[in-house]
């Protein structure tokens, strides 16, 4: 596997981590009810979305530049 493939795999795992952190914040918010956890959940889900968009853009750009064949 090249660095491009490994990078895409890494971004997938990072996206899953961001989703997991978001769900953890929601879980703690439900039991503790402090606004900081809700803010953490929103921030984590936003990061997950940003990573997903970045991953798609990265793949397209590498393909366009013929660095992924």
């Amino acid at each position: 596997m090249s660095i491009k493939g490994f990078h895409i795999l890494f971004i997938i795992f990072s996206t899953l981590l961001a989703l997991g952190v978001g769900l953890w914040c929601v879980w703690v918010d439900l039991t503790v009810g402090e606004p900081v956890y809700l803010a953490g959940a929103i921030g984590s889900f936003a990061c997950a979305l940003a990573l997903l968009v970045y991953g798609v853009l990265f793949y397209r750009k590498m393909k366009r530049l013929r660095l992924i064949t």
Partner: peptide
């Protein structure tokens, strides 16, 4: 204190 039942974020 109920706030101590779970880990703190900060």
């Amino acid at each position: 204190n109920k706030k101590m039942d779970r880990p703190h974020f900060f």
